[in-house]
Amino acid sequence: MKINNRLKIGIVIVGLFVLGGFILPIFCTVDPSLQGSYMDYAPVSWEHLLGTDALGRDIGWYLVFSIRNSLILGVTVAICTTAIALVVGLSAGFSGGRYDRVMMMINDSFIVIPAFPILIILNSLVKGHASQGAIIAILVLFGWAWSSRTIRSIALSVREREFINMAWFSGCSRPKIIFREVFPHVFSYAVVGFINSILWAINTEASLAVLGLSSVERPTLGAIVYWANTYSAVITEHYIWIGAPILATVLIFLGLFLTSTGYNQYFAERRGHS
């Protein structure tokens, strides 16, 4: 089976970011979020590959830690949301009937309610020092609904297939049918949902941080843009400070998105062949 280009490019980009984000910090000697470690606005050199910022922090190292922290946040949220989405989607789609209708009503409500303002409330209540856990909890609360909707519709169609009847007549229990017979069909959609959740979680947290509404002391992809914006990096023409995180963010999102659509395509083709 040929792997399509989208998936290839996506995996390469995401792979580079994951490797860079998790291996490079081992070699870092100074905590990059510590202010005044170096000279302010040091130019690009071997010592500081991307220079330093207005608060004497190495931009390159700060960016590396940002990528790592953002990825950790995204993956944590995605694991939880995918688990909830699988439980809700599979049970609703497979059971059908009134249970399905009620669950989908709740599901659609969570899709429609904007999570962003609720995160703003959360952060302002604790004066911008929301713990990572609280942010993750809210992101999970509002993040599961999209993939659950897809999983449910797939489960709904699988339910009508012949082999499910076969399983019923052979005396399989309901949980066994759901996990052994329905789950494999839903798996690829769950993976796509998982990657999209990572993307969404990183994006939402970063948007909060950019506005200074998350705890910006912890380096994340949003926090670095926040600091650059606060110190008017655009007007003072420190383009690397704002340009590097923007480029990194664009690449990481593009990589994740290509992986998710590429994987979707890969699986669609495989389904077509089998």
Partner: peptide, 18 residues
Amino acid sequence: GILIYPIPYYIFAFVLII
């Protein structure tokens, strides 16, 4: 579409500002 879709709002805002 692929290049535009996954990019967050704030990135577009900053790019447009610059």
